[in-house]
Design a binder for these strands. Sequence first.
RNA 1: GGUCCUGUGGUGUAGUGGUUAACAUGCCAGUCUGUCACACUGGAGAUCGCGGGUUCAAUUCCCGUCGGGACCGCCA
Length: 438
Amino acid sequence: MKKLYFKDLNQYFNQKIEICGFVDKIRDLQYVQFIVVRDSSAKVQITIEKNPENKAMNDLVSTLTKESTIKASGTLYDRPNVKLRGMEFIPTRIEITSVSLEELPIDINDYTKESNKELRLDNRFLDLRTEKNYLIFKGQTLAEMAMREHWIANNFIEIHSPKILGTASESGAEVFKLDYFGKTVYLAQSPQFYKQMAMAAGFNNVFEIGPVFRAENSHTAFHATEFTSVDIEISWIDSHHDVMDQEEAMCNKMIQKLKSSIGEEYARMYNKEINDVLPKFPRIPFFDAKKIVQEKYKYFGEKEFDIDRREEELICMHFKKETGSDFVFITEYPVQARPFYHMLDESGLTKSFDLLYQGVEITTGAQREHRIDILKKQAVEKGLSLESIDFYLNFFKYGVPPHGGFGFGLTRFLMKFFQTESIRDVTFLYRGPNRVNP
RNA sequence: GGUCCUGUGGUGUAGUGGUUAACAUGCCAGUCUGUCACACUGGAGAUCGCGGGUUCAAUUCCCGUCGGGACCGCCA
């Protein structure tokens, strides 16, 4: 049997078909019964008159519970007077394929108050049954597809770097340790070193979409201990601006794809259009950005060499007003805020950038230092032992193109794109300091 | 890791030092001429997170504990 998606049902009027899905609502009246059935794409009404001929089905429906799954065969009719999509399905046979318990641990109806978030995460499989949550993962699929299309058109190679590491990878974050046949190994907190290795391998341009692990005891809406990172690395760049050009192009493709594919559904569910994306995003050097926030908003961040949450929000607010852009690049971060492998410019600032989206940092990128002597010197200055990164330094001994790249937090992007309050809402199954189940 | 907040039927909330803990929704039963967030009537459902203390009396006040959240720090 080929599953018919309910969104396509208007092609099947007056035909004998089989439909299957979850029971969304049951309205059992004196002379007629209605079942609203739902699948991932839409809902449809099944109508059964109460009469001797239908007795078997009538009895079945009276025992049916919401959220059970059913299959029904019958005929679909065009019925303009039915409010739900102007159609109804008249069955000749209904099969209950599984029965749901009567009461659900969470309320999945859109029009009532949302259940407690923890309870929803405990019962994520039920939480995800709503059309709004389904749209998030449809959006994620399309976003990844758009990015892949962009990369393939630009000669990128997809890599799958290991997540079990003998030495800790470097992104400035804490790492998880685990037992590996009696030895201590680490979970990858970034594919950083390996995507650079691909540059040394002559792959020219690479990308990876994969999990990364961070042992940070962070209790915020923007952090998870495991999340999906989109990483790219490209060779033969002149500066970090070439990397930003790539990210700009990628984001444009992505937003345009989302707009063309789910723009209507998004507008219906969120009462708002997807914002247009500008072909070019504002690029503002770190200290200039600080200055704007200080002069315009009279806000003085506590961190001299980094940007705090409030500053991120104000910078985004400023450029949204000035240019209409949801995206803003902050460039030339001071060396104090950056890892050892970022390349420095003549003035001692890093050739690096962050990308902010709707007030949140979604990317860090840079031109990498590919000259081994300078790389070693910078590592030592950051307090790293050269032995610990020996395997990494090897990549630079036998010729390597100038290169750079970025890591893009897919869930952070989706969180803001879908206007959710937490990264947990856009993660299939969230992992955090206090959550490793289900 | 720091600061602050929170825990009451299945779910979401209200409320109180003192008789039967309220409301909405959900659930069950019945009624109902096609509903469409169906409607109406009735019913079941809560040792008020857990432990201790104060008190004649604690769901309420205090302490501890466990769970949870928000913001900050760290980062994507």
